[in-house]
Design a protein around this nucleic acid. Structure first.
Lengths: 342, 342
DNA sequence: AACCCTATAGTGATGGCTCACAAGCCAGAC
DNA sequence: GTCTGGCTTGTGAGCCATCACTATAGGGTT
């Protein structure tokens, strides 16, 4: 007699379930895949066998034949920051609901090689689609050149060629922020922008510029930071020297924090002497002194929409799509009517 | 004559490479896996064929036979917050270097069902190990009960049974923070703790308590927040009513931000009237008014160590391990010597 | 000259699943 | 009573690697 293998060791496979339920492995497969042509009775038998055996379908075997891994890749820059982290969370949640796994690759810079490597790794892994959350102006061109052969959704831009896009209307957000300042009577409104090359940064600059032009005002000073509070602080020290400036639109909340400190150090009160608006709506923003007026971006929605677009690309490779999320101005206490210049 | 399939369509497989290089598929496999028993000449031929064909090994097929998916799962709570996001980034980076993919599952609460579901999904996916970054006291027990059958590394606790652990020495961090306040001459030191159930919160409370006892001081008021600036603000309003308090140790920076605002509103100056210490070292912390003294946790290192432990568990299923990361006090301007009570 | 050994390469089985197709069954129609 | 067709179920091939063997060649030994 042949020695029986210790069955306990091996994870049960479809055949084991079939044997126990008294059907063929194919029927088990059908039950698992929700095929309509299985009688209720058989279906129940199979399901019981599955539970009793603790059967779990082998993803690798399945992927091998279906050529689908149920996985999407998320390539992201600055994952440790508020916006990207929230988008990641939302994308991942939406993916889970749709039955997809999310594999991540966080990168720290914009180095072409690093990005290309990460994308190749996704391809090696066999992802079905890739979400690219790297807000640099060169990204679409780079992606088109790499020609990856899977659906791609780029966060922060509109669709471009075969690339789909999901974006917050940054320009509109900037317009609302600046218009708010204009409405308060400010006439010299400075802008502390994000660094060159960043898509969002450029759009906010253009929203700022456009709104001022539309209001018949000259553009105030334009300084460039690097999104950090430190750079906002530096910018603040410079702006503090110019007494004609009564309002500043910072391209993000962190720089606004730096500005706030610089102004406080120089004895300039916010909002009495200078109004300040940021972008992002960091959770701490409402508890700064003073609470920060800001533009909320709706990262949650962005992430969800991103996955919607991805799914539709995955299901039917139609043309690329664009989804736009509306930002929202949150008025708090860092902005006030322009005091008459004395 | 049979119609030739449009070869262009199908992704090349090992056999295609073998044909082109004039060897057997096995030799291609050997080259790919770095087997020593392939002559340099053959190896070169194969590599050239791989490049020419743009061959990419099918992960699913490989996983099917090796029973290894090269994937680890990361289950995390509060992924949109500073600490967890940084840990994620570090874990993922270390994983990539080691040739592993990282699949993520972000959860928003501590609901047993949600956690169990996410873990089951990881198992369905076939991850080789799971990193659990859910800082709740009940987690180790829950994990042990679920008995998942893959190596698990829990972030925030020491090893426990078969579970490995990687942690920051929270108690030590708290001690340093409180000792710093004691050294400045403060005698009534309050603590705003994190919510019940959170491991870190409890450890910080105990570090605070221990240090005070060691210094022969009575424990000051103990309030409980929920990590948010809003809760810190509420706590601050209460603490502001007690003039004997000259220092507050907040369990995180966000609550410290809220405290700062409450104190400012009540006309209490930091650090002149009250010294304030946080935990986390948020990037904005250095630019608050005043810059915040805080305990830096070393999330980067935590993430790296976490993956080291995971890898060693994966390679040789020895006993569970624990890695401890040392926190570091960063003294800035929110703490000052205790002013004599007038 | 016969033999053994090592280095290198090839053969065929195998992993667990889905797909395409074939087969069995039973009801209703003629 | 036979036939037709729909509903269920089963059979066998195939996906693409790796693994365990086997085969071959060339060098060194005795």
């Amino acid at each position: 007699m042949l020695p029986t293998l210790t069955e306990q060791q091996r994870a049960p496979v479809m055949e084991d379930v079939a044997l126990r339920a008294g059907v063929s492995h194919q029927t088990v497969s059908r039950v698992l895949n929700g095929s309509p042509s299985v009688s209720p009775k058989t279906k129940e038998k199979v399901q019981r066998a599955i539970v009793e055996l603790g059967y779990r379908r082998n993803t690798a075997a399945r992927a091998l034949v279906t050529r689908k891994t149920q996985t999407i890749g998320l390539l992201a820059n600055g994952l440790n920051e508020y916006g990207p982290a929230n988008i990641l969370l939302a994308v991942q949640e939406a993916a889970r609901e749709a039955g997809y796994f999310v594999s991540i690759a966080g990168i720290r810079g914009f180095a072409h090689q690093e990005i290309a490597d990460a994308l190749q790794r996704f391809l090696d892994q066999g992802v079905e689609g890739i979400v690219v959350q790297v807000p640099h102006a060169d990204i679409p061109a780079m992606l088109k050149e790499l020609n990856l052969g899977v659906p791609i959704v780029v966060i922060g831009t509109a669709a471009d060629g075969s690339l789909s896009g999901v974006m917050v209307d940054q320009e509109k957000g900037a317009c609302e922020a600046v218009q708010h300042l204009v409405d308060l009577g400010h006439t010299t409104i400075a802008h502390v922008a994000g660094p060159d090359g960043w898509i969002d940064a450029a759009e906010r600059v253009s929203g700022w510029r456009r709104t001022l032009a539309h209001a018949g005002l000259a553009a105030g000073p334009l300084l460039t930071g690097d999104w950090t509070a430190a750079s906002g602080y530096q910018a603040g020290l410079k702006l503090a020297e110019d007494p004609t400036i009564t309002a500043v639109f910072a391209a993000n909340d962190q720089m606004a924090v730096g500005l706030l400190r610089a102004f406080t150090e120089k004895g300039i009160c916010v909002p009495e002497d200078i109004s300040l608006v940021g972008v992002d709506d960091l959770p701490e923003g409402a508890y700064l002194v003073p609470p920060l007026t800001t533009v909320r971006q709706g990262f949650e929605e962005l992430g969800r929409r991103c996955l919607e677009v991805m799914l539709s690309q995955l299901e039917s490779a139609t043309t690329a799509q664009t989804a736009v999320v509306e930002p929202r101005l949150i008025v708090r206490a860092s902005t006030a009517p322009c005091a008459p210049i004395q």
